[in-house]
Simulated scan of single mutants.
Amino acid sequence: MKLIAVSAGLSSPSSTRLLADRLVESVGGELGAHGHTVPAEVIELRELARDIASHLVTGFPPPQLAAAVDAVKEADGLIAVTPVFTASYSGLFKSFFDLIDPDAFTGKPVLVAATGGTARHSLVLEHALRPLFAYLRAAIVPTAVYAASEDWGSGGDEYTDGLPSRIRRAGGELAALMAARPARAEPEDDVTALERQLADLRFD
């Protein structure tokens, strides 16, 4: 299995990248506790911004962007984290996912998350991020994670779980979906495929 996180934060360091890292740690820890060793990678879209714009105009992805797109396609689990801009996901975030074949997300376990200055933007998870990945037919975990500035270091209150609790719960849900997916068959190389065709001919 392989875990990929996509962070659309624009600054360095950014709270968006920090949230992505915390979620990766949560998923990896949960899978590790059940005997799964899962390599993980965080893709920083800020480093690919020029390549994304170029691809949208020319239709040809530069090598670094092509590698990032392939990593998302091949991932067994995806964490997608964006800052909130004008009550929705960022343009950079949407532009990146517009470049990927929608069929690549069918049944793929996805955890959505966002960061913003205040808690009043938290509904972006339900009115923007979840519908986007539902349209792509992804398997979205029930718990989405929003982190406002005041959430960092917060333990929550009697009505609301703190950010660490939400991260643990969402990470556990994504880990469970990833572990439940059937193993993917390795593609045959050309020689193996030819041998199989010859064997079929001999039995005709």
Rank of each mutant, 00 (worst) to 15 (best):
K94N: 09
V57R: 15
P109G: 11
L92N: 13
V84E: 02
A53Y: 04
R22I: 00
A180Q: 11
A114W: 02
D103N: 14
A49F: 07
S7H: 03
E173Q: 15
L198N: 10
G171E: 03
P61M: 11
S14R: 06
I52F: 12
L132V: 05
P39M: 14
A180G: 05
V27K: 07
M1N: 13
I52S: 13
V6H: 06
L23I: 10
K108H: 03
G29M: 12
T37A: 14
S149E: 12
M178T: 06
E186S: 15
F203E: 08
R168L: 11
L129F: 07
H127I: 12
Y159H: 11
V112S: 02
R17I: 05
L99E: 10
F203T: 14
L136D: 04
D189Y: 04
T82N: 13
G91Y: 05
R50S: 15
D204I: 01
V27Y: 01
L129C: 02
G9H: 09
A119K: 03
E195F: 10
E173F: 12
L45A: 14
P39R: 09
T37K: 14
E47P: 07
I79N: 07
G116L: 03
R196Q: 04
F105M: 09
F105D: 09
E150A: 11
Y146E: 09
V24R: 12
T16E: 02
V69T: 14
R181D: 00
H34F: 04
G155V: 04
G32I: 14
T143K: 05
H127R: 15
K108T: 00
V24F: 08
